[in-house]
Amino acid sequence: MQQVERDYYSGIVEEVKNLTDEVEGKKRKLECWSKELDERQALTEFDRQKLDEEKKIKKMREKEAALHKILQLEKELDAKQKLELEIKSLKAKIQMMKHLGNANNADLQKKLEVMTAELGQKDEDLAYVESLNQTLIMKERQINDELQEGRKELIQVLKDTLSSTVRTTIGIKRMGEIDEKPFLNTFKQRFPPEEAQLQASTQCSLWQQYLNNPEWHPFKIIYYAEGNSEIQEIVDEEDERLQNLKLELGDDIYMAVVTALKELNEYNPSGRYVIPELWNFKEERKATLKEVIAYIVKNIKTLKRKR
């Protein structure tokens, strides 16, 4: 009886062990499958993002190529003014020849016929050029609208991928936003570190509010030359508020405020709020679409990791 009982329990233990081994084996297999599925899903997501980025870049390049073609055609249309002058001169010559001597003069008649035919051809050319010019103007407006949309898309892409604390060659500059560094540098010379930070932030915020107020417009109009219709709007350095700023807080803060003021007046004179812009920080100018696309293509792996 004892032997039977031992054999019975031994069989149970062996069966439990076998079942445990089987469960562990299935568990390991499931973990492998799960890991493989995760890797495939990650790879699929990466491929999808890569495809989306490539589509956006291709679209931008197509728009840029179209704009380049438009600009080339516009250069060709500069011949319009020359053509108009030629027509005017030809008409004057024809009128002059009609008033010359004998109308039966065969040579004179032949010259008149040739010049009249040439005038007719030039009139046709001018009509074609004017029609083409109107078409190109409409096409250029359409392309410009599409390029602006493209810039907005790229701004959003860089917003999602770039850290606001890291300065890169190509990035986003907030046009019309006052640089706080001159404030901080100035107040560090006047206050302890913690108070300097507070004073700098407070004063910078205060002047940002001044800039965003459309009722304050410290600009004046100047003409390039007397009798010239071309005008330019510049900062009025005699504005009382700006003069007090320069006197109380110094040249560096004054220039930071004036720079932001000029940017607002250029990018958003009516709304007077900060506008994001694609920027080439190395050359301190607006970045072209070509530069931004090249930067994204070159750094696409790094940008994806940040994203």
Rank of each mutant, 00 (worst) to 15 (best):
G150M: 12
G150N: 10
R151Y: 11
R151E: 15
R151L: 08
K152G: 08
K152T: 11
K152I: 13
L154V: 04
L154R: 12
I155V: 15
I155K: 09
I155T: 15
Q156G: 11
Q156R: 15
Q156E: 15
V157A: 14
V157F: 15
V157R: 13
V157I: 15
V157Y: 14
L158G: 07
L158M: 12
K159E: 14
K159C: 13
D160L: 14
D160W: 08
T161H: 13
T161D: 11
L162R: 08
L162C: 01
S163T: 00
S163L: 00
S163Y: 00
S164R: 08
S164G: 04
S164P: 03
S164L: 00
S164T: 11
T165K: 04
T165Y: 07
T165C: 00
V166I: 07
V166C: 01
V166R: 10
V166A: 07
V166E: 11
R167V: 02
R167I: 01
R167P: 01
T168P: 01
T168S: 10
T169A: 08
I170Y: 04
I170S: 02
I170F: 05
I170A: 03
G171A: 06
G171H: 07
I172R: 04
I172V: 12
I172F: 04
I172Y: 02
I172A: 06
K173Q: 05
K173H: 14
K173T: 06
K173C: 09
R174M: 13
M175Q: 11
M175V: 06
M175W: 08
M175G: 05
M175A: 13
G176A: 11
G176L: 10
E177Q: 14
E177K: 15
E177C: 02
I178F: 06
I178L: 09
D179M: 01
D179K: 03
D179P: 02
D179C: 06
E180A: 11
E180P: 11
E180N: 01
K181P: 09
K181N: 10
K181V: 12
K181F: 02
P182T: 07
P182C: 07
P182D: 10
P182N: 10
P182Y: 05
F183P: 13
F183V: 10
F183G: 12
F183I: 09
L184Y: 06
L184H: 01
L184G: 00
N185W: 05
N185I: 09
N185C: 02
T186L: 07
T186G: 07
F187S: 08
F187C: 08
K188A: 05
K188Y: 05
K188V: 02
Q189I: 01
Q189P: 05
Q189E: 13
R190P: 00
R190G: 00
R190L: 04
R190S: 01
R190F: 02
F191V: 02
F191C: 02
F191G: 03
F191L: 13
